[in-house]
Write a protein that binds this DNA or RNA. Structure first.
Lengths: 332, 332
DNA sequence: TTCCTTTGCTAACTCGGTTTAATAGATAAC
DNA sequence: GTTATCTATTAAACCGAGTTAGCAAAGGAA
């Protein structure tokens, strides 16, 4: 079914049908009689306009792109859930893609989404995306960057206070009496990781201690990762570790459990995880307000789409330290 | 930029440009000279055809819809990841939606995706989707149902052997010496849940014992759920529980830990989870081959889109019992 | 009656592509 | 020299909508 066929069936013009369907009957001086005739028929046959044709004619789509690292993980998954349900309520569809750790995919994904003429783009950028994102800004498409920043590019950004929250986390370990606090992070140079690392370094330096860092390549598999962590723990006389993200903490926890020193060890992770409440000892963490981050992203996207100019360039939503504190504390 | 503008700029016809861009130069007897001229220009200005216009003209989209219960959970998330990356390689985009436990959303989501003229639909159906799915079949759209079946409807289906795998799980508990094995499941009447439950009931009956079932409403929040589980454990003299899904098992595990009887308890969960390897005692589970399920879904979708008729109506991929066995066994 | 408004509706163009029948010019065949 | 065949190209129709200028009929004012 199409608007033209309806027009023929009712012996009226396409224009009338289109105007009525779009609720422009009044303003286009369509008689109530005509309006009723068309609406009744449309309802009767259950007609829905072809949204592809609509998009072509209006130049607008109701599709929004979402690009994250891994939609299957415990951070991006719930964010994607909330973003989609909020946008659906507003009549939008969400197209997603995961870069899955392969930085080079980023630009291609952005381009192919742009060809689909999406209405807006939400991105947790990889390192290789900078050129592509600059082009996006040039193209004027509504854009929200989140979680980590795109280098030297000013866009709407939603994220947490990585530096401050990390500083609080490290301070917490010191306050508990731990002295030799190491940090395990990924080797990524994404902004959020750098901020977390810098906070650790600065806090440790303030205590006149020297930072002990292990940076693990993203593409290592789990056993390789655990091997590295094991070495790191053995080679340094640590009593606590600050993990820059939860999947690293889980690996680290496994290793520590193996050595059976986990009960004295200080452990704090950035990002919460179901596991942390269930294991013994439980794990203290920096929890990002996932729902709120998703809400702010959606808010910014919608504002930009609707041409409102009061969206924030920098929407920083503070994380909270969730103290679980079930370890026995340092024994030195 | 558009094909027409390119045509004007080069002083040739739209048709020539379109044919060349689509690689139909040879078969349409376009001269190599003309072909080169057009291709060079297209590359120079970095032109990409508007895929919305293409869709309208061809009646085909390269967008595939994915409808699951919750894209943020540990089962659907990784499946969504794999589905999207596989389909992207084949030139498709994926539109997702989560019903999020609200059965009534299902039909609306399906309809709005259909309006977008998606090329195919992948659904883990809710209970309310039956009418809508019947319509889909009528509409001839390539369709794959997975995880749970749509009632009385024959479509391409990908899933695991819920009944057999559950039977193995319950047998495993009996083999370990447990006698009073309860089952905790959701109150959902989705097919996969019913199969898991039925297997449990039959296995218990075979031992001349009576089934002890707790069915928890999906919409309960975590504390309410734990409350119910606590009662269930107290009121029945259980020594083991079979959980129909991992999120229920996590709740149950928490409760059992609280009562400190977790080390003697027999616990098996359907679906694996990161937690299960990390907690002590570790948790034995029935693990669905997630990657393979996603691959088979994609395979079926592509076959249907390409008009190949050898896709399977019933693609059952067996689960494996992952025995972690760290409990001490029953003490009775 | 004539002229001006208002009302109700629609023809025709547009969006950016795909597809096919038709055409003109060059070659080949007779 | 005439006709048939090929080659290279394009005009025109189409997909399914949205948009707007303009027309005819009716009503009102002079």
């Amino acid at each position: 079914m199409s608007i033209s066929k309806i027009a023929k069936a009712l012996n009226v013009s396409k224009s009338s049908v289109s105007l009525v369907i779009n609720g422009k009957a009044k303003q286009s001086r369509i008689s109530e009689e005509m309006e009723k005739k068309i609406l009744d028929y449309v309802k009767e046959i259950g007609f829905k306009p072809n949204s592809i044709a609509q998009s072509l004619a209006t130049g607008k789509t109701n599709t929004i792109g979402l690009i994250v690292e891994n939609i299957g993980d415990s951070f991006f998954g719930p964010i994607a859930l909330k973003i989609e349900s909020s946008l659906r309520e507003k009549g939008y569809h969400v197209l997603y893609s995961s870069t899955n750790g392969v930085d080079k995919l980023g630009e291609g994904i952005i381009n192919s989404m742009m060809e689909r003429r999406i209405a807006a783009l939400i991105i947790a950028p990889t390192m290789d995306m900078n050129k592509a994102i600059k082009k996006l800004i040039h193209s004027q498409i509504p854009l929200v960057i989140f979680d980590r920043r795109a280098q030297e590019i000013s866009t709407a950004y939603v994220g947490t206070n990585n530096y401050e929250a990390s500083a609080v986390a490290v301070k917490h370990l010191f306050a508990q009496g731990y002295k030799n606090i190491g940090m395990i992070t990924s080797d990524s140079s994404q902004s959020q990781m750098l901020e977390r690392k810098q906070a650790y370094i600065n806090e440790v330096n303030q205590q006149n201690l020297k930072p002990l860092l292990l940076e693990i390549p993203y593409r290592l598999n789990v056993p390789e990762r655990e091997e590295l962590i094991g070495q790191f723990i053995n080679e340094n006389d640590l009593d606590a570790i600050y993990f820059s993200t939860n999947y690293l903490c889980i690996s680290g926890y496994k290793v520590l459990s193996r050595y059976d020193i986990v009960h004295q060890f200080g452990i704090v992770s950035f990002d919460d995880h179901e596991v942390f409440e269930l294991v013994k000892p439980t794990v203290t963490c920096v929890r990002q307000p996932i729902i709120e981050i998703a809400e702010r992203i959606v808010e910014s996207v919608l504002k930009q789409i609707n041409g409102e100019s009061d969206w924030l360039r920098d929407d920083i939503i503070p994380s909270v330290l969730v103290v679980r504190n079930s370890t026995q504390g340092p024994n030195k």
